[in-house]
Each structure stands twice: as structure tokens, then as C-alpha cells.
């Protein structure tokens, strides 16, 4: 089981990294989302894949028997919520950029850092 999860993790993270390096804005964001989900999975498995039973001490028991580790589940839940919020923000940001710039090509998106015509000096920006 742990090997299957490790393999899945490797594939998801590799795919995420590949897409995040893309010049297409939306692909880049999807890559980051995949990367984030891969790492969430990593966080989940950090508590080991021992059991799927809930960690509840029964009415007639004194100690917890075989059960899943609840801590990584709590951690990964937090991380999922945060990454979802950031995903929503990034999609709105991307949409607005595509509307304003008229392109989703990241290599042509140089509004904050315009390319200079001068060989030695940076470009002169009109707005201050």
C-alpha cells in the first residue's frame, strides 16, 4: 500500500511541477494546484497508513486500540482549506490578467517588468 501511495505521490508531484513550469497561465496554476494536492497527500501519509478505524475509545475500553492517526488528518484538512482558498484567488487573478492583457502567454506578460530598448539602462516607465 505504502509503495502505491509513494508512486502516486511521485507522479502527481512530477506532473504538477511539469505543468507549473508551463508558459500558459492556466496550466501553470493547475500545476500549482496538483503540486499542492500532492504535498497534501504527503502530509496525510506522514502519520503512516496503519488502519482505517476512527480513533475513538469505546465505552468499555480504557486505551485506544488499533486506529488511524488523527493528527495528520487534522493537519491536512487545514492545508486543503487553505489551498482551496488560494486556488479561488489565483483563478480570479488569472482571469483578470487574461482580460486586461488579452493573452495567457506568461512570456509576453511583462507589465511589471517592461523589456528595455536601451542596452545598458532599464526601460523608462510612464506611470509613477
Amino acid at each position: 500500500m505504502i509503495w502505491a501511495i509513494a508512486l502516486a505521490l511521485g507522479i502527481v508531484i512530477a506532473a504538477g511541477t511539469y505543468l507549473a513550469l508551463s508558459r500558459d497561465l492556466l496550466r501553470c496554476l493547475i500545476g500549482l494546484v496538483l503540486l499542492g494536492n500532492g504535498i497534501n497527500l504527503l502530509l496525510f501519509t506522514s502519520g503512516r497508513l496503519s488502519s482505517s478505524l476512527p480513533p475513538v475509545i469505546g465505552a468499555d475500553e480504557m486505551v485506544l486500540g488499533v486506529a488511524a492517526n488523527p493528527l495528520p488528518q487534522a493537519l491536512v484538512l487545514t492545508a486543503i482549506v487553505i489551498s482551496f482558498a488560494l486556488l479561488c484567488f489565483s483563478l480570479v487573478l488569472a482571469l483578470r490578467i487574461i482580460q486586461l492583457a488579452g493573452s495567457d502567454d506568461l512570456t509576453r506578460l511583462r507589465a511589471a517588468e517592461p523589456t528595455s530598448q536601451d542596452a545598458v539602462k532599464p526601460a523608462l516607465e510612464e506611470e509613477s
Partner: peptide
């Protein structure tokens, strides 16, 4: 919400999110 600000925000977002991940 000007384009140069959004462009800056995108670069900040992608690189910092990578660091956080």
C-alpha cells in the same frame, strides 16, 4: 487592479506559493 499590479501579484503568488508548498 492595474495590469502591472496584477502581473506583480501573479509573480509574487506563484513563487511564494511554491516556497510555502
Amino acid at each position: 487592479g492595474a495590469l502591472r499590479q496584477l502581473d506583480a501579484a501573479l509573480k509574487y503568488f506563484v513563487l511564494n506559493l511554491f516556497g510555502t508548498l
